[in-house]
């Protein structure tokens, strides 16, 4: 597995190898042409809705570093934390000045959850945060311990086991997150019943899995890479539309369950409040694009199982993807309420 990840990182580095030193200058020159005369004259703030040191924050800081590299503008990371991200999203959508100096580094499901958690009282909708660039996608995976009962089973066999012994397989779930939704969807799509054990986050669930207190845990690759390399864990399936480049031999949930509805991948993008002047927005889009194509940055992403390939190269494509995620969720939650 370690080889596989390292190999992928190397591949990316090779693919991006064309962006050599003179190319950096070229990209910088192209970007400078787009720069409005009056913008930016002060540092740009990257707003993150989660505490410093977390996954979101690390991603933002990394992107900020390469944003600075190409644009020559200073970036300041600001963590506006509170209310499961709602405080920060509300700030970005309704209070931040639309002058281009405030850019949120956000994740589609968290944005949508922010609106949903306010139970109809939200003063903003996801469309009020206008995308300027795609950052990366992560993949939620299901893992089992190599010492547990399910160590020799594939995802389809685990589903069969769940069917054979309903209500006995213990699956970790983190309430109000994709991990909970994923577990629910596996139950409905697979027609099975499990014991969903609520945890406060991925790490406690992982510890419980290693201690044999649960059978299956949902985690992101970055959380458990060390244990995977040490041979303590096995990945069952990944909850994306397609297989993860870093884990090409791991099937998707959709493959294992014969459906196309299961996609709980974090989708990270940069967004600004509405009404940012068009020229400034265009400059931000170009600066992010330059930063996010940097091979070193992509290699950093890949090390943690993050997919930064520029599948959504324009902000229109990003907005369309956010809409698609929103639609899928509306469908999921309407069924969930009905149930």
């Amino acid at each position: 597995m370690r080889k596989c990840i390292a190999g992928f990182a190397m591949l990316l580095a090779l693919a991006g190898g064309s962006a050599s030193a003179q190319n950096v200058d070229q990209v910088r020159a192209n970007l400078a042409k787009l720069k409005p005369a009056d913008f930016p004259t002060q540092p740009i703030e990257f707003v993150v809705m989660f505490p410093a040191g977390g996954g979101m924050d690390n991603t933002a800081r990394l992107v900020g570093k390469y944003f600075e590299k190409y644009s020559g503008q200073r970036v300041i990371n600001v963590n506006r934390v509170g209310g499961a991200g709602v405080v920060g999203h509300t700030y970005l959508a309704t209070q931040a000045k639309p002058d281009g100096y405030t850019v949120g580094i956000v994740e589609a499901n968290t944005v949508l959850d922010g609106v949903r958690l306010q139970e109809g009282k939200s003063t903003w909708q996801h469309g009020d945060l206008e995308p300027v660039a795609f950052v990366n996608t992560d993949s939620t995976t299901w893992i089992v311990s190599t010492e547990g009962n399910l160590k020799n089973k594939t995802m389809s066999e685990v589903i069969a086991e769940m069917k054979a012994k309903p209500g006995t397989i213990r699956v970790a779930s983190v309430t109000n997150t994709m991990l909970e939704y994923l577990a629910e969807q596996v139950e409905t799509e697979g027609g099975v019943r499990t014991i969903k054990v609520p945890f406060q986050g991925g790490s406690p669930a992982l510890a419980a899995l290693l201690g044999g207190h649960i059978d299956v845990s949902g985690n992101f690759l970055a959380e458990y890479r060390g244990h995977l390399e040490a041979g303590k864990l096995k990945i069952l399936a990944v909850a994306g539309d397609e297989r993860m480049p870093a884990l090409a031999n791991v099937p998707t949930f959709n493959e294992a369950l014969g459906t196309n509805k299961i996609n709980w991948s974090p989708f990270r993008y940069a967004a600004v409040p509405k009404n940012v002047p068009a020229a400034r927005k265009r400059y931000l889009e170009a600066a992010f694009d330059a930063a996010l194509r940097d091979p070193e940055l992509l290699a950093e992403f890949a090390k943690n199982g993050l997919d930064g390939r520029r599948k959504y190269a324009t902000s229109a494509l990003v907005a369309a993807e956010v809409e698609r995620v929103a639609k899928g969720r509306v469908e999921f939650f309407s069924k969930r309420v009905a149930k």
């Binding site: 209310g83 958690l117 309430t175 909970e180 406060q200």
Partner: peptide, 20 residues
């Protein structure tokens, strides 16, 4: 704040600051 098991909001009185 948010109940970590059911996801229900407890004693937040509609304040987004109290969700967490």
């Amino acid at each position: 704040g948010t109940d970590h098991v059911s996801g229900a909001l407890r004693y937040t009185f509609g304040s987004q600051n109290l969700i967490g």
